[in-house]
C-alpha cells in the first residue's frame, strides 16, 4: 500500500483514571483515505473509547495518533475537532437552536461569511434529504428520530471535514428508518469520499457499511481487520467466528453479483434439460448471489433464470454456482492470509 494512511493509531492506549485495566490497549490501526472503516465488537470492548481517542475527546495514556502523517497527539484538541466530524447515537442537537443554527455551528466558529454559511446550511440539509425551507427554521423537538440524525450528520459535515467519526449513529433508530438512513449515507459517501470511522456492535450493519471491518475484542484488541468478504469467508479465530455468528456463508453471498458468474445455458421454456424441470424464478444480472439463493428457495427449483438488460433470459444460475463462489472466496482469503504469514 503506497498511500499514506489518513489516520494512523500507533500503539495507542487508554487507561481511565481510577481503573486498572486499560479500556484500549496498544491499538495499532491504519485508516486509508476515503474508506469506511467499521469498528465492531461486543459492548464494552472499547469501541467508543477508541473513537474518542481519535478526536481527543479523551487523552490517550500511551501511543501516538497521526492525521495525514502529522502527529496530532499534542495539538490543541478544539482546533483538531473542528476538522473532524463527530456523530453520536444520542445525536445531541442543541435544543435551543433551530436546525439551520445547529448545522451552522462549526462554520460559525470558523468565522465563515454569513452568506457562505447560509448557502452551506442549505446545501447540507438538501444533501441529507431535508428541505431547508421546511426544516431550517424548526427546532430539534419538532423532528422525528430519523430526521434528527440526518441533521446530526449534516451538522458534522458542516465545515466539510475530511474525517468523520460516527459512534453507533443509527443505533437508536427503528429498523426501517435505519435501513434507509444507511442506504442514503452510503450513497452520500459515494460522492463525498470522506474517511470514516464507524462504530457499531451490529455485525450486519458492519458488513453493510464497511469497506473494511475491524473486529475488536476486549480492550480494543484487533482480532481481524479486513474487507467484509474476507472476514466472512475466512474468520481467523473462534472469537471472530462466534462474533459474526450463524449464516456466515450466506452473508458472504451478498458480495457477488450473478452477472459475474459463468452461467449455465438456458434451454428455453420447453427445453428438455437433463437436470429435470425448468426453473420458474427470474432475477436480473445485477442481483447478488444472496438474492439468487432466495429466489431458488422461494420457487423450490434449486436454480433460477437470469434475465439480461432487455428482459431476455441470459442463462441459469444453479446451487452449485453458489457453493463454488463461496469456495473460491474462501480459497482466495486463505491464500491471502497464508501470504501474509509467509511475508512476516
Amino acid at each position: 500500500m503506497a498511500v499514506e494512511p489518513k489516520i494512523r493509531l500507533d500503539h495507542v492506549s487508554k487507561v481511565y483514571p481510577g481503573t486498572d485495566t486499560p479500556a484500549v490497549s496498544e491499538l495499532t490501526l491504519d485508516i486509508d483515505p476515503g474508506e469506511i472503516l467499521v469498528l465492531v465488537g461486543p459492548s464494552g470492548c472499547g469501541k467508543s473509547t477508541t473513537l474518542r481517542l481519535i478526536n481527543r475527546m479523551i487523552e490517550p495514556t500511551g501511543g501516538r495518533i497521526y492525521l495525514d502523517g502529522d502527529d496530532v497527539t499534542d495539538v490543541n484538541p478544539d482546533q483538531l475537532r473542528r476538522r473532524i466530524g463527530y456523530v453520536i447515537q444520542q445525536i445531541g442537537l442543541f435544543p435551543h437552536q433551530t436546525i439551520a443554527e445547529n448545522v451552522a455551528t462549526v462554520p460559525k466558529m470558523l468565522k465563515w461569511e454569513k452568506k457562505k454559511i447560509s448557502a452551506r446550511v442549505d446545501e447540507l440539509l438538501d444533501m441529507v434529504g431535508l428541505d431547508p425551507r421546511v426544516y431550517g427554521g424548526r427546532y430539534p423537538k419538532e423532528l422525528s428520530g430519523g430526521q434528527a440524525q440526518r441533521v446530526g450528520v449534516a451538522r458534522a459535515l458542516g465545515a466539510d471535514p475530511s474525517i468523520m467519526l460516527m459512534d453507533e449513529p443509527f443505533g437508536a433508530i427503528d429498523p426501517i428508518t435505519r435501513e434507509s438512513l444507511q442506504n442514503e449515507f452510503l450513497r452520500l459517501q459515494d460522492e463525498l469520499r470522506k474517511t470514516i470511522v464507524f462504530v457499531t456492535h451490529d455485525i450486519d450493519e458492519a458488513i453493510k457499511m464497511g469497506d473494511r471491518i475491524a473486529i475488536l475484542g476486549k480492550q480494543s484488541v484487533v482480532h481481524q481487520a479486513d474487507t467484509p468478504e474476507r472476514i466472512l469467508a475466512y474468520p481467523v479465530d473462534d472469537f471472530v467466528r462466534s462474533f459474526i455468528g450463524a449464516g456466515t456463508a450466506m452473508k458472504g453471498l451478498a458480495f457477488e453479483r450473478v452477472g459475474d458468474l459463468d452461467l449455465a445455458p438456458f434451454d428455453g421454456p420447453n427445453g428438455n434439460g437433463e437436470s429435470g424441470a425448468e426453473p420458474t424464478g427470474t432475477i436480473t444480472a445485477d442481483a447478488t448471489l444472496y438474492e439468487a439463493l432466495e429466489e431458488m428457495l422461494r420457487t423450490a427449483d434449486g436454480k433460477t433464470i437470469v434475465l439480461d438488460d432487455s428482459g431476455e433470459p441470459a442463462g441459469v444460475v444453479e446451487l452449485s454456482h453458489l457453493s463454488d463462489a463461496l469456495r473460491t472466496a474462501q480459497d482466495e482469503a486463505r491464500r491471502h492470509y497464508d501470504e501474509l504469514e509467509a511475508a512476516s
Binding site: D78, R81, R82, Y86, I88, G92, F94, T105, M109, G152
Partner: peptide, 9 residues
C-alpha cells in the same frame, strides 16, 4: 449535547 458541543471543537 455537551458531548456534541465538545466534539465540534
Amino acid at each position: 449535547v455537551v458531548e456534541s458541543a465538545r466534539g465540534m471543537g
